[in-house]
Design a protein around this nucleic acid. Sequence first.
DNA 1: ATCAGTTGTTAAACTAGTTTAACCTGATTT
DNA 2: AAATCAGGTTAAACTAGTTTAACAACTGAT
Lengths: 199, 199
Amino acid sequence: MENTSTSDKRLLFTYIDRYVTLTTEEELFLKERLRSRRYLKGQYVLQQGDICHYESFVLSGCLKVFYSDSSGGEHVVMFAVEEWWVSDMGSFVNHTPADYNIQCLENCELLQFTHSTLEELYTKIPALERFFRIIIQNAFVAAQKRIVNNHRLTARDRYISFIDQYPDIAQRVPQYLIASYLGITKEFLSKIRAQINQG
Amino acid sequence: MENTSTSDKRLLFTYIDRYVTLTTEEELFLKERLRSRRYLKGQYVLQQGDICHYESFVLSGCLKVFYSDSSGGEHVVMFAVEEWWVSDMGSFVNHTPADYNIQCLENCELLQFTHSTLEELYTKIPALERFFRIIIQNAFVAAQKRIVNNHRLTARDRYISFIDQYPDIAQRVPQYLIASYLGITKEFLSKIRAQINQG
DNA sequence: ATCAGTTGTTAAACTAGTTTAACCTGATTT
DNA sequence: AAATCAGGTTAAACTAGTTTAACAACTGAT
């Protein structure tokens, strides 16, 4: 069963409220500039090589961010589920061709804004600049930890820590995409799983 | 010959000026809250397990950020040279024990501020919140690219792209630290270099 | 019911990178 | 001038993870 229920923008505002406080006017100002958009399973939100025009907040559904290498292999960079932000940030802020594809693994509902809207929001609502500073800061710390863990841990331990950290995602997406995210082949992940299940 | 010449704070202000404009009063306010500190080659700016109290801007010198694993091996996370920022950001913002050590590879002069100073700066000078939002954003984009390159490229290509991207650092720091940064052993880097030099 | 597409498993041959250990060079100390 | 030390190289045995290829299980569409 696909989730096709109507989500609403409140999810975003309760999320923002965890970090900063917006006045009623500020909330309204922001709400008017958000575009809500639905995508079907399989649809692309962004294609590698295009300019990434939107920063998206996931209201419902699940997406993968990945790139295709020269021989056609796909490599998953990250997943995004409810309450995650997704974009190719390099492309979004610098207006350069995107390194990544973003594709829906389920039917999705996203809240989006453009780069010029975000710039407007930053100048009109300083609390939002703080909000995104904190969000990006957390993303950077997580990215740096991931770089270190990719050195330090074996594929087995990376898999175990992935299941531990994102049990929901581990059940929602197929194994071969998890293998790709972990930087190993699906065959090797299969071997690891067999090994774990036997003890 | 070590570089022991006196640098000054102007390097930081010309750097900030590339991203945002500060008024004279704002510059003064910031300048008064910066502490300038010299470290000798080999000295630790931060030890793994301690709380990271300072965000540091490098006026002169070169540092390594690394962690020690359970069997005593050292793994380099990043280098920092003139005009780079260095800290354990996770520890700095959350007041948690640092994952990393920061040690000087040369005599260094750093400009530092504490977390409470930074919070004060953010509220008093919105332009600085914007400045750091942009800096952190760039750091995040770079970190994500590094995650991908560690998947996509062989050790050989990672080495070539490192020399290409940071020729200055490649000449300033010993090979075995570069190997560690690239996530390979010094022996394997040596093999790669031999292979490159022969054609 | 069946056909085709998608996901997951197993196994054998292979390769990129590690480990261990010995050795070389140049710089600094004694 | 000898001794030590930090940085770098080489080579042989090894291991984590890949490749290729075949097959099994499940799904949805006709």
